[in-house]
């Protein structure tokens, strides 16, 4: 049975790695639901967060293929139960005379969102949470004529002790950065 998996990948910061990694999904006909990359808590090491909807066996195999890439340090695979995760969504509303400001603010408040900025006749609303929640707000804002909507990829952290720092230490002691012969 297919379910949501979050794949977390730690890599060296190298050009082309993103495409090398995504092509592994393409080759296996796995659709990427969302993808986020950023520098990790370790200087010079990047973290990819890839969300896919796939069966477990295929997911585990693609994770091994990712880890096989020479500039990938480590790849982990989590189910939703294993992680705390979040997405951020921004909504743009145009404040014209037809808008009921009070009703709008009520929707914002009950959804745990906030007004990030008011620029002239535009209002930017921000909401963080799971996809269902940002979607819920999207539905409720529809009557106010949404001018723009964007949702980020998922970011996630595991619920348990991270083994990556240990792994990194192991890698560093077990390899010698380019040495002269």
């Amino acid at each position: 049975m297919k379910k949501i998996f979050t794949i977390v990948i730690f890599t060296e910061n190298k050009i082309g790695l993103l495409s090398r990694i995504t092509s592994l999904f393409t080759q296996r006909h796995i659709n990427i639901e969302s993808l986020t990359t950023s520098e990790s808590e370790y200087t010079g090491i990047h973290r990819f967060t890839v969300v896919i909807h796939e069966v477990e066996d295929k997911t585990k195999k693609v994770v091994k293929q990712i880890e096989k890439q020479v500039e990938v340090l480590k790849a982990f695979c989590f189910t939703d139960e294993d992680t705390i995760y979040s997405e951020i969504a921004l909504y743009k509303i145009r404040l014209d005379e037809t808008i009921d400001r009070v009703a709008l603010e009520a929707v914002v408040n009950t959804n745990g969102a906030f007004i990030k900025e008011e620029i002239g006749e535009f209002l930017i609303i921000e909401k963080t949470g799971h996809k269902e929640q940002t979607h819920q707000l999207f539905e409720e804002l529809k009557p106010f004529k949404i001018q723009g909507f964007v949702r980020s990829g998922r970011v996630s952290l595991s619920r348990t002790f991270s083994t990556f720092s240990q792994h990194l230490q192991y890698l560093e002691t077990h390899s010698k950065e380019i040495i002269t012969q």
């Binding site: 020479v70 390899s175 380019i178 012969q181």
Partner: peptide, 11 residues
Amino acid sequence: YKKCRGFRSYN
């Protein structure tokens, strides 16, 4: 020129 003997992301 220095030969490469290893780097951390590759085992």
